[in-house]
Amino acid sequence: MALIDTTNLADHDGFYAELLATHQGLSEMQSQALNAQLILILANHIGNRQVLSEALKLARQNIG
């Protein structure tokens, strides 16, 4: 598996708080728009098709 599925982020609690703070004051629609842009930005930055496919599969697991 090329996708890192163990903790890989220093200050992960800090990032989580920043993610929520970024959404603060946005309507549900605006939050959805922000999330969509964020996915596209990060996907381009990761730049590895296999990692992205694995990430999509992991996210989809047990949802719907």
């Binding site: 959805q32 728009a33 969509a36 842009q37 596209l40 930005i41």
Partner: peptide, 13 residues
Amino acid sequence: LFRDQVLALAAKA
């Protein structure tokens, strides 16, 4: 949603 956000993002990145 994704289509519109690609267009929005294209203007800045």
